[in-house]
């Protein structure tokens, strides 16, 4: 299966995190909020500007900018 990024997940769909490929402090931040390999993430809604999307990550709703979520590789999309 082709690798996809978290920002490609359509609203309302779920995906499984494969790897966080960003580096430095943002990588640590993303890992801290629970985006480790194997985590199920649901894309919930995006903001009026369309540059920020809120994801349901381990029970918490967290918004991430699209430039950051494109550095999160995902494995598959569940319906």
């Amino acid at each position: 299966m082709n690798e996809m990024n978290l920002c490609d997940v359509p609203l309302g769909k779920k995906a499984i995190v494969e790897k966080v490929i960003s580096s430095g402090s943002i990588k640590r931040r993303l890992l801290d909020i629970g985006l480790t390999p194997g985590t199920v993430v649901e894309s919930v809604f995006s903001n009026p500007g369309g540059n920020l999307t809120a994801y349901m990550i381990r029970g918490a709703l967290i918004a991430i900018r699209d430039n950051d979520s494109k550095n999160i590789l995902i494995r598959e999309i569940e319906s």
């Binding site: 960003s22 931040r29 993303l30 909020i33 709703l61 967290i62 430039n67």
Partner: peptide, 11 residues
């Protein structure tokens, strides 16, 4: 340049 951040939306 704008840096990265995460924003929690609490219940």
């Amino acid at each position: 340049i704008p840096s990265s951040f995460t924003l929690e939306l609490p219940p």
